[in-house]
Design a protein around this nucleic acid. Structure first.
Length: 592
RNA sequence: GGUCCGGUAGCUCAGCUGGAUAGAGCAGCUGCCUUCUAAGCAGCAGGUCAUGUGUUCGAAUCACAUCCGGAUCACCA
């Protein structure tokens, strides 16, 4: 039973005893900084059933708690707020829960498994900042769900075929002159992206020419030579034309090597990768099934539809008249495949909020088809990363490239570290590792501290901070503590919980309180699918520690119990920071 | 136009299962390194919580309306 639960129980009993009123759900909130106490119980709602003033009720409950509660020590009442302080022995018990449990904040298996699909890149261009948000969210969520008791399967569905891939293939065929990543010195994904942009440039020129010749723009976009050629290439690919398939293999191979490097660098990986070229034909048997069940219906042109107007959606096409798939057909098939491969209890998709509607439709169809996994499906919809100039567009080259950004962050981390001159004794490998940790710490934290649902702004003119509410601030706190732990080890000081007679310093209580919150936050983050909950927690914990650090002296305190206790506290904080940042995919440095 | 999401300090964001004088960080201004890492700490200043009405003992939080921004409503993915 947690302290909070005991306190709630005591309050419930006190109300029962003094007023003969039963309150089933006692709500406690953390006491505001400017008042004394750690938990606050609001008594306003009780005035209806108990005909006394809020303050009087608070006084009576408080008195009862102070006399009989096993955890509460004293109280004060401000209007309808009963602020409760805990006994020192209670604080020490709370801390020993943290201190003695190596897995504090990691929940035992809940017997459920979940698949998290994220990243899902297109093989016609390199990753950009928006993909980084997706990757970091997916990776972090997977870790958070695992810590909260789920068995997690991370998957990636690579969008490796389609008209957009053919566009870069075509531009390469026409303009490439046999260029390769080796000959150009470009990373393969960047090379493919270059031709994707070149396609768009030429395509636009062609449209412009046709329009100048008097063709309406709408028609021109459909009749420009290169778009027709790209469509032809797609047909050739679908018919397994050896030359086309060879080019496709070659270019995708370059892209995969490029992606591999980027994934390695940012520390993201998958348990299972699906390729759309293998799955794009799936789903047609489900269409047949739906037709025979009358879930779907056919129009005169042979196209297949579903009517979702009763669900508040529209009529949706699920199969073209010529029998070819659309996006939703493939997703139906792929989801079925995932289920037959893994039989998970839940399926999550980390995909931008521009696809909210698509997923509503997908889930509604799955439900109508009576799929057993339909209720476990959930779209983790996140907001776009916008630039001050607006939306990023790959075709127009207005993107913040992932590789460039990471490289730039590493440079900033290096120069900042060198300015401070604290690691002059590091060899180059150690220094490089630190710069990487700091760069990714800053970047990941920047993208994960914001509520995933909200769109966020990135201003390339202002580099991402290393001070204040940032990843490096938290990493710094960790490094500071490690320094203390090393000193304690050298001096032979053991981390020990003090005897029950120990009188705690207020800063110590604050730290224990912050530590005790960790499991609650892990659970909340998992329930809300929000790594930002962990981000904010890690920052709060680091802040409380830095206050503690500035306020008390660890080694020069005359009381040996204090010294040992503070070393123990520091150790627990460092471990909790490491765990919390770990859930965000952020590493911690021993020194910085 | 329909649907969905958002609008909190100059900037970036917390807070949103209703509770105390609305919180951080950045930027600005003051202090604090002969003692455990100053990538830190303490403080000052900065707010019609988009607007209006309602519900309530109490509203940034809930409801309704309005304004502004974004997404989406493709036989694209």
């Amino acid at each position: 039973m947690t302290i909070e639960a005991i306190l709630k129980d005591d309050i419930q009993k006190a109300i029962q005893k003094h007023f003969d009123v039963t309150v089933e759900d006692i709500i406690l909130q953390p006491t505001k900084k400017e008042f004394e106490g750690f938990y606050t119980f609001v008594t306003f709602p009780l005035t209806k059933s108990i005909r006394k003033s809020p303050a009087e009720i608070g006084q009576i409950i408080g008195t009862e708690l102070a006399e009989h509660s096993s955890v509460a020590e004293k109280f004060n009442v401000v209007q309808g707020f009963l602020n409760i302080s805990l006994k020192d022995t209670t604080w020490l018990e709370l801390f020993s829960d943290v201190f003695n449990d190596q897995d504090f904040g990691t929940f035992p298996s809940n017997g459920q498994s979940v698949m998290v699909e994220f990243s899902s890149p297109n093989t016609n261009k390199p990753l950009h900042l928006g993909h980084l948000r997706n990757n970091f969210l997916g990776d972090s969520l997977s870790k958070i769900l695992k810590a909260s008791g789920y068995d997690v399967v991370k998957t990636c569905l690579v969008n490796d075929r389609g008209i957009h891939i053919c566009k870069s293939m075509l531009a390469y065929r026409e303009l490439g002159n046999g260029e390769t990543p080796e000959s150009s010195g470009m990373k393969g994904d960047h090379l493919a992206g270059k031709y994707y942009v070149l396609f768009d440039k030429e395509y636009k020129t062609q449209i412009k020419e046709l329009v100048e010749q008097g063709m309406p723009e709408e028609e021109a976009t459909k009749k420009a030579p290169w778009i027709l050629e790209a469509q032809k290439l797609l047909l050739l690919w679908e018919n397994n034309d050896p030359e086309t398939v060879a080019l496709w293999h070659k270019m995708n191979g370059w892209v995969y090597e490029g992606f591999r490097q980027t994934y390695d660098k940012i520390g993201v990986g998958f348990d299972k990768t699906y390729y759309e070229s293998n799955t794009y034909l799936l789903g047609k048997d489900i269409i047949e099934e739906g037709l025979s069940n009358n879930v779907f219906y056919k129009k005169p042109d042979n196209s297949v539809w579903i009517d979702l107007t009763a669900e508040g959606l529209d009529e949706k096409l699920v199969l073209r008249g010529d029998g070819t798939s659309v996006y939703i057909t493939q997703d139906l098939g792929t989801t079925e495949l995932k289920f037959s491969d893994f039989h998970n209890n839940r399926y999550l998709w980390v995909v931008g909020n521009e696809q909210d509607y698509h997923f509503k439709v997908l889930f509604a169809i799955l439900k109508k088809l009576g799929r057993p996994y339909a209720d476990g499906c959930y779209h983790i919809s996140y907001g776009m990363v916008d630039l001050p100039s607006g939306k990023m567009k790959s075709r127009e080259g207005t993107v913040v490239d992932a590789d460039d950004l990471v490289e730039q962050m590493i440079q900033t981390a290096a120069s900042r570290t060198q300015e401070l001159g604290k690691i002059d004794d590091f060899d180059s490998a150690e220094a490089k590792q630190l710069y990487n940790q700091l760069a990714l710490g800053a970047l990941k934290y920047f993208l994960l501290k914001v509520d995933p649902k909200k769109r966020m702004l990135f201003n390339p003119e202002e580099s991402i901070d290393f001070q204040g509410h940032t990843g490096p601030f938290i990493q710094y706190t960790y490094a500071r503590i490690r320094s203390i732990i090393r000193k304690a080890e050298q001096s032979g000081i053991q981390p020990v919980i003090p005897p029950v007679s120990y009188v705690l310093h207020p800063a110590e209580k604050e730290l224990i309180f912050a530590l005790s919150q960790y499991p609650v936050r892990v659970q909340a983050a998992a329930n809300e699918f929000a790594p930002s909950v962990i981000s904010l927690y890690a920052f709060e914990l680091a802040k409380v520690y830095n206050q503690f650090y500035a306020e008390v002296s660890i080694f020069s305190d005359p009381n040996p119990d204090s010294v040992k206790f503070r070393v123990a506290l520091s150790g627990a904080v460092s471990e909790t920071i490491q765990k919390a940042l770990g859930l965000l995919g952020i590493e911690v440095p021993e020194r910085m």
